[in-house]
């Protein structure tokens, strides 16, 4: 397969910069860097950057723990049997 197919099509990088509204709301030392925007060489790079900033809220783990406690894993009878012998 053509290696070019693994690259983002077109030569233009994917650009992201803060909106004008956000820039106005956050005046500070970082502003110029953020306003200049970021460039991503490929769609994968962009999505991976996005993914790095996302994690499940803690309440998901809490819910999961509660669900496991409510109905703990039960061994099927044939597995329980093994331990009797």
């Amino acid at each position: 397969m053509n290696e070019d197919m693994d690259k983002a099509p077109g030569s233009a990088p994917l650009r992201h910069r803060l909106s004008g509204r956000a820039e106005q709301e956050h005046q500070g030392v970082e502003q110029s860097a953020a306003a200049a925007g970021r460039e991503f060489g490929s769609v994968e790079e962009l999505l991976r950057e996005d993914a790095r900033g996302v994690s499940p809220p803690e309440r998901v783990a809490q819910r999961l723990q509660a669900s496991v406690r409510e109905a703990p894993l039960r061994r099927p009878w044939w597995r329980r049997w093994r331990f009797w012998g």
Binding site: L18, A22, E25, H26, G28, E30, A34, R38, E49, G53
Partner: peptide, 11 residues
Amino acid sequence: PLRVLEMKELG
């Protein structure tokens, strides 16, 4: 806050 906002807008 700026970094968070940047990531939020990107998302």
